[in-house]
Design a protein around this nucleic acid. Structure first.
Lengths: 251, 251
DNA sequence: CCGTCAAGATTTCTGCATAATTAATGCGCC
DNA sequence: GGCGCATTAATTATGCAGAAATCTTGACGG
């Protein structure tokens, strides 16, 4: 994956502390003690400080003289960061997080397909075809299928030729891997192939409406599969009447 | 703004080096020499190394033993990071970047309004009303109006009650501030108030379609204002027939 | 062609010095 | 006597310098 952050001792410490913050071991407002971490993780001041610096740049912690280093409120976290999304998935599969993920995907991906249908190049189509082939390969193991699925959605967003849209792949990746973790039985999920093919066809034909509709039904299908696997309804693709908090507490 | 990264000497160095990477002073593939930076910026090894570590966590650089520290290809940058979006705006106003920004906003914000219309609480509406009042205040200076505008859009996304959607405010903020920089004459832009009010009304009424339509027209208006101010058409809200690259290079 | 070795740069460690900020303290004032 | 304010002091992050350790890479030799 991201080679820059996972290599060496430093990256390991960042992941350890970051993971503890996201899974609630360290809760917002709580102070973390660098010296304690040095002893526990058996590393030097330097490594801990560099790790905390990185975490600070992601909005997870803040350190000020005399007050120490403490965990910032969750609202300050840069949740769109790839690392944070990964760490978030390390903890208990949170239903709310899963729903948020699916909801954003349901917004991003159809729109991306719409753009892709207009802007795709031959290279984009080739990438999507390659991924689709990997998805349909009956000899591939579960992990390879997941990777092919991810490649397909990445290629779709890339075909939109919007740099920021392309970076939203982090959300798509998190959603896909989270779904994989829920289903995780390694289900072949063969029904996915025609749905993906429909997306490719719509994009290749240059038909934005068809491409978007294909993505819609793809996500709907994935969502219902996931709901089926997870017992209750876990993630509805289109705005569910999520019960808003009681209108009380008007500040 | 973000207090965690802008304080102290370290934050300054991060901004300096990060800014140079985004504005092209250091281009992808190029090697950066820590010792050189130490001398030029007159700081110690530690500060430079911590800064490079933070930049590495944002995907800007990668350092490997024996090979040195070098700038990663732009495709690896975490462009959704708040700092990167800010640094990106420090350079020349890039037309392409501006268009991408507007395009993503045109996807995110209507969808956010749709959700907000269903899920908003009284507190959400109060926040939006407060921001709207600030936007309409005839005694406020240009900066205050910008901030109120930003608050309004932030409150709108927050009312969607989707954590990830809320974090997409970074894109909205970048878009707003960039637009401000183009127009920058401090135009009162009074026409914006009724458009914003329409959004609020739609959300308050619990009418998703109306809220989304109001946001659509708001963004369209902003986009055309911007096009008018920037001479040529700078950012069309809805998918323009951006000429795709020639279909050559199939791989 | 493969394994071993050596060079080189990053990475890590140690200890110390500095700066900054908060909290307490003491003083004067109401 | 209580309260507000400036000063002081303590605590913590921050910055610095040098050396040792580690790992990758490239070359050399079998």
């Amino acid at each position: 994956m991201a080679a820059y952050s996972g290599r060496g001792l430093h990256g390991h410490i960042v992941e350890t502390i970051g993971g503890r913050i996201l899974d609630g071991t360290y809760s917002p407002g709580q102070t973390v003690y660098p010296e304690e971490l040095e002893r526990e993780l058996e590393v030097s001041k330097t490594v801990v400080r560099e790790a905390l610096r990185v975490l600070a740049s992601k909005g997870l912690v803040d350190s000020r003289p005399k007050r120490g280093t403490f965990v910032r409120p969750r609202s300050e976290w840069s949740l769109l960061d790839a690392s944070l999304l990964r760490w978030q998935r390390r903890g208990t599969p949170d239903r709310r997080f899963l729903a948020d993920l699916a909801e954003v995907r349901a917004i991003i991906e159809p729109a991306g397909a719409r753009l892709a249908a207009v802007r795709r190049t031959e290279a984009d189509l080739a990438a999507m075809r390659e991924a689709l082939a990997g998805l349909a390969d009956p000899d591939a193991d579960a992990a390879a299928v997941i990777e092919a699925d991810l490649r397909f959605h990445r290629a779709l967003l890339a075909a939109a030729h919007n740099e920021l849209m392309g970076r939203l792949e982090v959300v798509v990746e998190a959603g896909l891997r989270e779904r994989d973790r829920i289903v995780h039985a390694g289900e072949r999920w063969p029904d996915a192939v025609p749905a993906h093919r429909a997306v490719l066809d719509g994009v290749a034909a240059g038909d934005p409406a068809a491409a978007a509709a294909a993505v819609d039904s793809l996500l709907e299908q994935a969502s219902s599969d996931l709901a089926h696997a997870a017992g209750s309804e876990a993630g509805a693709a289109v705005a569910p009447p999520r019960p808003a908090e009681p209108p009380a507490a008007a500040d």
